[in-house]
């Protein structure tokens, strides 16, 4: 699935390939359950979400509820070549819309 097919907010275009979704605010769960080509949907709009994604080879991160990250977080995502998206939706609605589009969570 191409990111532009599932983009839920206005963002820069991306050709990143997404196979799985992981929705959590807790970073150890990202590390435990995610796979490399997942999208992380999180309400933790902080540097830690980018660091964790980088360690876990996640290339696309969605911050929910329109949370604007600080400058350091944006810079880190650029440095690590992680596409950062912001959706106005809550985590529930974002998950619901992506699930409707056929995206599924990472198999354990």
């Amino acid at each position: 699935m191409r990111l532009k097919e599932i983009v839920i907010t206005n963002s820069r275009d991306s050709e990143a390939e997404i196979e799985w979704a992981c929705a959590t605010d807790l970073m150890s769960d990202v590390l435990y359950y995610s796979r490399g080509n997942s999208v992380l949907i999180t309400g933790l709009a902080k540097q830690q979400a980018i660091r964790t994604s980088d360690i876990a080879d996640i290339k696309v991160v969605v911050f929910t509820r329109g949370k604007e990250p600080d400058r350091q977080t944006i810079e880190l995502s650029q440095k690590k070549k992680i596409t950062l998206l912001i959706t106005p939706y809550s985590m529930f609605t974002a998950c619901g819309k992506l699930y409707e589009e056929g995206l599924r969570c990472c198999p354990e």
């Binding site: 529930f92 998950c95 619901g96 819309k97 599924r104 969570c105 990472c106």
Partner: peptide
């Protein structure tokens, strides 16, 4: 035993069918 993503995904569909908001 399911993930938050899957649980939310399925529930979203159910609630939407009943016109309930997330």
């Amino acid at each position: 035993g399911k993930s938050a993503f899957e649980t939310a995904g399925k529930l979203y569909r159910i609630l939407n069918a009943r016109n309930l908001q997330g």
